[in-house]
């Protein structure tokens, strides 16, 4: 049986990353891909980078005392990511799993740059995180994400709206402006880091089948296992 070609990170597993704005549909797609990979018999590890207890508790405290700055905010998320990386991503990657990650370091690159941190500095902090084998970027207009949020009755949180930046006193307006900044950063990253761009204004089915098609060549020689491990 031919060996799969080596990945840049040098580990036997593969790292598949889903990136994009909140409400871009990436989480839905990541979950569907996980199901499919599992059904095809691959060893899959699914992980998502949302605020952990460490971050959310500290952020709550920092907000109350008005202590958080762009820098501590950035470093705090880096700490959280490092914990996830050291514990949840690196071991399965080394163990030969297909690691599906809903958000990765790029989320931090985009968010921190939008908050005014020096991009080279942010990158250097995340130097421990290897380049993924594929980054799917879910491109969508900011207006669409806002509509989806409102339609699904999700609350917009303070930091997601970039309210700390003082862009606007109105939550929705601030959200739109901040997300527009984020999108600009994502678009920049899409070029420099060669993201696979997914037009996320289409139907869930269309998008999913495009992603599966895209991964077929990579998976062709990838060994199958038996278990799906879900990050809890």
């Amino acid at each position: 049986m031919p060996e799969p070609s080596p990945a840049p990170h040098g580990f036997p597993g593969r790292l598949l990353v889903f990136e994009g704005l909140d409400g871009s549909g990436k989480s839905t797609q990541a979950a569907l891909l996980g199901k499919w990979l599992q059904a095809r018999g691959y060893r899959v590890f699914f992980t998502e980078w949302n605020s952990s207890e460490l971050v959310s508790k500290t952020i709550r405290r920092g907000k109350k005392k008005n202590l958080l700055t762009a820098t501590t905010f950035s470093l705090l998320h880096a700490t959280d990511f490092a914990d996830r990386f050291e514990r949840r991503i690196l071991p399965p990657l080394r163990a030969g799993y297909l690691v599906v990650s809903d958000r990765y370091a790029y989320t931090a690159f985009a968010r921190d740059a939008a908050r005014g941190c020096a991009p080279e500095w942010v990158r250097s902090i995340y130097a421990f995180a290897p380049q993924p084998d594929r980054v799917f970027y879910f491109r969508v207009p900011v207006q669409v994400t806002l509509k989806r949020k409102i339609a699904s009755r999700q609350k917009i949180n303070y930091y997601e709206a970039g309210m700390d930046l003082g862009l606007s006193d109105d939550l929705y307006e601030s959200y739109e402006r901040f997300q527009t900044r984020l999108k600009q950063e994502y678009e920049r990253l899409a070029e420099t880091d060669r993201f696979t761009i997914v037009d996320s204004t289409r139907s869930v089915e269309e998008i999913q089948s495009e992603i599966r098609e895209n991964l077929r060549p990579m998976l062709e020689h990838f060994p199958t296992g038996e278990r799906l491990v879900h990050d809890r």
Partner: peptide, 19 residues
């Protein structure tokens, strides 16, 4: 925590004091 995580946690603490 692993080594990288711990190092970053200390960095948060330092940045906070600095600022």
């Amino acid at each position: 925590f692993g080594g990288t995580t711990m190092a970053l946690l200390y960095a948060v603490d330092f940045a906070d004091q600095l600022e």
